[in-house]
Design a protein around this nucleic acid. Structure first.
Length: 881
RNA sequence: GCCCCUGUGGCGGAAUUGGUAGACGCGACCGACUCAAAAUCGGUUUCCGCAAGGAGUGCUGGUUCGAUUCCGGCCAGGGGCACCA
């Protein structure tokens, strides 16, 4: 600055560990459950311990940490814990490849990642750390499972699974690629297996309805869950079967429809190949049996399903129209009907459904328009479309529908529902209203080793026997081998052999383990009291901490993890482990970290560390450092190992410091969008760090003197500080970190502008020094949630004895934000022509006069008299003329 | 195919929710300091135009004194679902 003093550069590498040590020693981030202050629970989705953190973690945890530190400064008792989603397949794969034990691999990874997270300077309460693979955690999961069983929330049933015959294992849908196992490459089979299920469908209605209450969730996530749950309102309708054509024992066919209004457009019935009626009809119809078999086989390949054409087979059976005993409709078996939705049977109305019209045209069935738009020309267009194979699927008005003609869709729905409900067949109503869901029960069985054992025992005499709670946890055996395909628990020589807890006879343990989504469905609850050895949760801790006030993570968990957690919370409540339905009050889904890709002349991908960028007026070019070969700069994509466009957080923290990495992550893009990691951007963040440090050093050197009154210039600086304070406060609350950064930059520009103008012959006045000191103090406090280490260093240099991390958020002087004069833009007919400055309390007449007095305004009016003048207070003046 | 979101300078983005479009940052260019470079500091930077001025928020129409913002149609990019009756 003016005084020509040189300030030492801020050395993040030296300072950061020093401040972390002080935070640790002062136990700044340890949270007590009996703290009387209001609580705030901020949580980021815990990581899978893959071994290294990646930039996505840095972004996610930086955001959570800003919230945690800010809320602490606002006087909240903040819970900000961290743990490990530690079960799962990668550990088993590593075991197979490297001959390491999954547990050893996992715990080594946890140690490495914990050290990395610590180097970020996150304000986490590590005393509450949990790992889901630890028996001290999964023991409670097993106990809850037993309670869920007793409460009727668990079921065993046969279901179809993707079976890899070579690896002898069940595959998740996403592990099946083009009909083959992702590891073995073997053709995947559909196999029926008895599996454990959580009855999430018991809560389908509630999980759907409660989405309306989650007003601090992204609309997108709520919509995705709503679609996933797939609630629909319809009618179950029983159709009598023509006795002459129906197999023995079948007198009716019950179908589900959401469009009972289209009943008079019915031209066929379609049933699933697995429908009991189809099976019965197949018995003496080999061709039909063959068709059903073919459909089942088709189902094995996901890819085939997507492109499969609609196929059917006429069973010869006729169904009788519910409103007309003389109207008979053929019953087809069709490959696009799913047995496990509704009743596995439908009536087809080709005029109003894409699939039905394709089917009807293929099998030359009648196509009768029954719903059409009310008015022309849309009506004619719809009729023409139907004739040409394009159904009209929207609401409209009824035609060709006897007593429904002229009604709208909703009225027709109601008329059909009411009439059929009042008619009876064999003593029961012909139809009843029914709400259906797309959501299926949650299959939790996995035939794997590295997961939480499902705590039950199979006894030939007693059946399925829960493991007594005193025998929990059911621990995984340590001596396992991975040299054979299949489930190591199944192969283990002794583990599964146990006496039956009921009768004492030889019995066998369940060898399935939990889906890892179960582990992450309640970890946030465990954090509230991870020390309780007797029970999963402690009522008082649950009561005071939950729900999580702000949950932050990736959108990829929008459906499964978040839906399962919502279900699990309800199940915990039903079994007395909790007392609330919704675990996450606020949810934020952050965007990904993306990076440019680079390709060597031979086509191989290069990492950012291997290349050098040259940029000038004629664009950017990249070269390989090793041999100066020119490198192709490719698209900006999600950081991934395969494209090698990854930047290692360790490297960044080593060169620039954690604060710089955090700052850049927060500064460049709105948090919900993807952020493009660039070397220039990080350097800019690093420059700002030095600039902030210099500002504080310079202000610290200014003389101190008591000041009573501030003049215009010093008030302007104070105003800038309080404006930034107001802006940052509002924007942190709304998680708009990129805007916080902009406010902080503006304040730093204001401060350094004053410092730069000063010189030996124009020294900074005492009053300005005081204003700058106030501004710098606020500046550091605003910085503290984002660049916590630097802020401590600056705080110290400004002369504070305590830590900024334990300092209350600055108090806003709202009076400073009110300016005495208002600069109004003046528009003429909507185009800006001039600016006028008027006193804050000028009357409308005065403002108008000032505006019309402007020469530019008169010129734009070209001699016309203004018709009216619109004055929006504090905003704008528009002269209409 | 259905549903949803997004579209603003060379780039990331901002705009108090209908009121000065381009805050703030990056990059680029010019200048200062330096023997020089780096670092730092100052300035310029939507486009056309010497200027006055004009155009401008994917395209197109509309509502309004006034539209990036609201409404209709289209185009482009991204995401979700996958025959759910």
């Amino acid at each position: 600055m003016a005084q020509d003093r040189e300030y030492a550069r801020y050395n993040a590498r030296e300072a950061e560990p020093r401040w972390r040590k002080i935070w640790d020693e002062k136990k700044l981030f340890q949270t007590k459950n009996d703290d009387p202050r209001p609580k705030y629970y901020v949580l980021e989705m815990f990581p899978y311990p893959s071994g290294r953190i990646h930039m996505g973690h840095v972004r996610n945890y930086a955001m959570g940490d800003v919230v945690a530190r800010y809320k602490r400064a606002r006087g909240f008792n903040v819970l900000h814990p961290m743990g490990w989603d530690a079960f799962g397949m990668p550990a088993e794969n590593a075991a197979m490849q490297n001959k390491t034990h999954p547990a050893a691999w996992t715990y080594a990874n946890i140690a490495a990642m914990k050290a990395q997270l610590k180097s970020m300077g996150l304000s986490l309460d590590w005393d509450r750390e949990i790992a889901t693979c630890d028996p001290s955690y999964y023991k409670h999961q097993q106990a809850m499972f037993l309670d869920f069983m007793q409460a009727g929330l668990v079921e065993r049933k046969v279901s179809k699974v993707n079976w890899d015959p070579e690896d002898q294992t069940v595959l998740a849908n996403e592990q099946v690629i083009d009909g083959r196992g992702w590891r073995s490459g073997a053709l995947v089979e559909q196999k029926e297996l008895t599996q454990w299920f959580m009855k999430i469908t018991d809560y389908a209605e509630e999980l759907n309805a409660a989405l309306d209450t989650l007003d601090r969730w992204p609309e997108k996530v709520r919509l995705m869950q709503r679609n996933w749950i797939g609630r629909s309102e319809g009618l179950m309708i029983r159709w009598a079967l023509d006795a002459a054509t129906a197999p023995d024992g079948f007198s009716e066919l019950e179908i589900y429809t959401t469009r009972p209004d289209t009943l008079f457009g019915a031209s066929f019935m379609a049933i699933a190949p697995d429908h009991p009626l189809a099976k019965a009809a197949s018995r003496d119809n080999p061709a039909l049996a063959a068709f059903c078999d073919e459909c089942r086989r088709m189902g094995t390949s996901v890819a085939a399903l997507e492109t499969a054409e609609k196929k059917g087979f006429d069973t010869g059976i006729k169904a009788v129209h519910p409103f007309d005993p003389d109207w008979k409709v053929p019953v087809f078996v069709a490959n696009f009907i799913l047995m496990d939705y509704g009743t596995g049977a439908i009536f087809g109305c080709p005029g109003g459904d894409q699939r039905d019209i394709e089917f009807a045209r293929k099998y030359a069935l009648p196509v009768i328009p029954v719903v059409v738009p009310k008015d022309e020309p849309a009506r004619s267009a719809a009729l023409k479309g139907i004739a040409e194979g394009v159904p009209y699927v929207d609401d409209g008005v009824m035609v060709n529908s006897r007593f429904l003609d002229g009604m709208d869709t909703a009225a027709a729905f109601k008329a059909v529902a009411d009439r059929l409900a009042s008619e009876s067949m064999d003593g029961r109503p012909v139809a009843q209203r029914k709400v259906n869901f797309r959501l299926r029960d949650w299959g939790i069985s996995r035939q794997r080793y590295w997961g939480c054992p499902i705590p039950v025992i199979h006894c030939e005499a007693c059946g399925i026997v829960p493991v007594p709670k005193r025998d929990l946890p059911v621990k995984l055996p340590e001596d396992v081998t991975f040299d054979k395909p299949g489930n190591p628990l199944e192969h283990h020589p002794t583990w599964k052999h146990v006496p039956c807890p009921c009768c004492g006879k030889a019995a066998r343990r369940e060898t399935d383990t939990f889906d890892v989504f179960a582990d992450s469905s309640w970890y946030f609850a465990r954090f509230t009291d991870p020390w309780n050895e007797e029970a999963p949760t402690t009522a008082s801790a649950m009561e005071s901490w939950l729900p999580v006030n702000q949950y932050i993570g990736g959108v990829e968990h929008a459906i499964l993890h978040l839906l399962y957690s919502r279900f699990w919370m309800r199940a915990m409540t039903k079994t007395g482990h909790a007392n609330l339905a919704e675990p996450f009050e606020g949810l934020f889904t952050q965007g990904m970290v993306v990076h440019e890709t680079y390709r060597a002349p031979n086509g191989e991908w290069l990492t950012p560390a291997e290349i050098r960028i040259e940029s000038g007026a004629n664009g950017r070019r990249a070269f390989r450092i090793s041999d100066n070969a020119e490198v192709t700069i490719g698209d900006i994509e999600k950081m991934s190992k395969s494209k090698r466009n990854v930047v290692d957080p360790d490297d960044i923290i080593d060169t620039y410091g954690a604060d710089t990495a955090r700052w850049f992550m927060l500064s460049d893009s709105p948090p919900e969008r993807d952020v493009n990691w660039t070397e220039d951007g990080v350097q800019g963040a690093g420059r700002f760090m030095q600039r902030a440090w210099r500002i504080c050093c310079e202000v610290a050197d200014l003389r101190r003197a008591p000041v009573v009154r501030f003049g215009a210039d010093s008030t302007a600086i104070r105003r800038a500080a309080h404006k930034a304070l107001a802006g940052v406060t509002e924007d942190i609350e709304r998680l708009r970190f990129n805007r916080c950064v902009a406010h902080i930059y503006e304040l730093s520009n204001a401060i350094s502008g004053v410092l730069a103008k000063a010189s030996a012959d124009r020294p900074i006045s005492a009053e300005m020094a005081a204003a700058l000191r106030e501004a710098a103090t606020i500046f550091v406090q605003l910085l503290a949630p984002m660049m916590p280490h630097l802020a401590e260093e600056c705080w110290k240099v400004l002369g504070h004895a305590n830590l900024v991390g334990e300092t209350a958020w600055p108090v806003l002087d709202a009076a400073l934000l009110v300016e005495e004069t208002i600069a109004y833009p003046v528009q003429v007919n909507g185009k800006k022509r001039a600016d006028v400055v008027v006193s804050r309390n000028a009357s409308e007449a005065e403002i108008e006069a000032a505006a019309l007095a402007e020469e530019a305004v008169q010129r734009a009016l070209e001699g016309r008299t203004p018709k009216k003048v619109i004055i929006v207070p504090l905003r704008i003046i528009n002269v209409v003329g």
